[in-house]
């Protein structure tokens, strides 16, 4: 706080005391009463989530990682993963896993959709969710050197029915490649199996979805067994993660734009590499439940 403003200076509408500028932006913490950071994430909320999520991660899904060392310990990196399950379990599991194993925060870039829902949006932000806007991603990766997680398939992947499981959808418009190029950070692909079986979607209603203004309204196997509670109750499928080799791009960062063809090519290459690894993991999986 700048000092020295006396009451005399403000009486009779006198000259505004134009103080000399203090040192540019002061560090925040002192005076704050919460630990909510500039992205809405709270370390305390994360710790609480970790306490609740730990047992689920460890005992229910028995999550296992391969190649965790390929995720950089410092600096920005864009984590790219496949997405599945009507209410996807992969995002919180990856975030929890990396935070526990590497002791680094992970920000989950997701559709703006959450932000409009009372309560949900706030809880999501406290847990590290960030609206997937290119400006946000660039700031996280380039300016702050953080880990950001993105699912390029988007809701096309979580909204697919069980018969389509493990078939990767189109990787959006390749925006994630564009951002990684601009920010000058590597892309680290992560493939997940088990997430499709944790909450298989049997059918969906486009009419209800339109009425409710949501991407899809699922009927899941979990709901058949548990009723509406099935939206929260996951089947105990064994979850496996495999981290692929980081991909760096041989382009200068901070360009206004990158060739569309190059962006598409790179996105498609990553998609195919991930698809191959998913099939490889499935080939070696003996049981959905025991891995």
């Amino acid at each position: 706080m700048p000092q020295g403003r006396s009451i005399e200076q403000t009486t009779h509408g006198a000259l505004l005391p134009l103080r000399p500028a203090a040192n540019p932006p002061e560090p925040e913490p002192d005076g704050r009463v919460t630990d909510i950071d500039q992205w809405g994430r709270s370390a305390k909320a994360r710790a609480l989530i970790a306490r609740l999520y730990g047992p689920l991660y460890k005992h229910w899904f028995r999550a296992e990682w391969e190649g965790l060392e390929k995720i950089p310990a410092v600096g920005g990196a864009l984590l790219v993963a496949n997405h599945a399950g009507a209410i996807p379990v992969d995002a919180p599991l990856i975030m929890h896993g990396i935070e526990q194993e590497l002791d680094r925060p992970v920000y989950g870039l997701a559709d703006y959709f959450f932000r409009g829902f009372p309560g949900v949006g706030t809880a999501w932000a406290r847990g590290g969710g960030v609206t997937a806007h290119p400006d946000n991603a660039y700031r996280l990766l380039h300016d702050e050197g953080q880990l950001a997680l993105v699912f390029p398939e988007g809701t096309k992947a979580t909204g697919k029915v069980y018969s389509q499981r493990y078939k990767l959808r189109r990787f959006g418009r390749g925006g994630f490649v564009d951002i990684a190029m601009r920010a000058g950070v590597p892309i680290v692909p992560i493939v997940v199996i088990g997430s499709e079986e944790a909450m298989p979607m049997l059918a969906k209603s486009a009419t209800l979805a339109r009425l409710l203004g949501v991407p899809y309204v699922p009927l899941t196997a979990n709901m058949l067994l548990l009723g509406p509670l099935g939206l929260l109750g996951y089947f105990p499928a064994k979850i496996r993660f495999r981290v692929l080799d980081p991909i760096t791009f041989d382009v200068p960062p901070d360009q206004e734009r990158y060739p569309r063809s190059q962006v598409f090519d790179e996105a498609e290459k990553i998609r195919q590499a991930m698809q191959v690894e998913i099939y490889d993991l499935l080939r070696h999986r003996r049981s959905v439940w025991f891995g």
Binding site: P2, I7, A22, P25, E26
Partner: peptide, 27 residues
């Protein structure tokens, strides 16, 4: 260069309100 961050702007505002609550409008 700024004299205030968002936080210190708020703090100064709150202090100003406190003073006003006691002595009324000072201008």
């Amino acid at each position: 260069s700024y004299t205030h961050s968002s936080l210190s702007a708020l703090q100064e505002f709150v202090e100003g309100r406190r003073l006003k609550a006691v002595v009324g409008e000072i201008v």
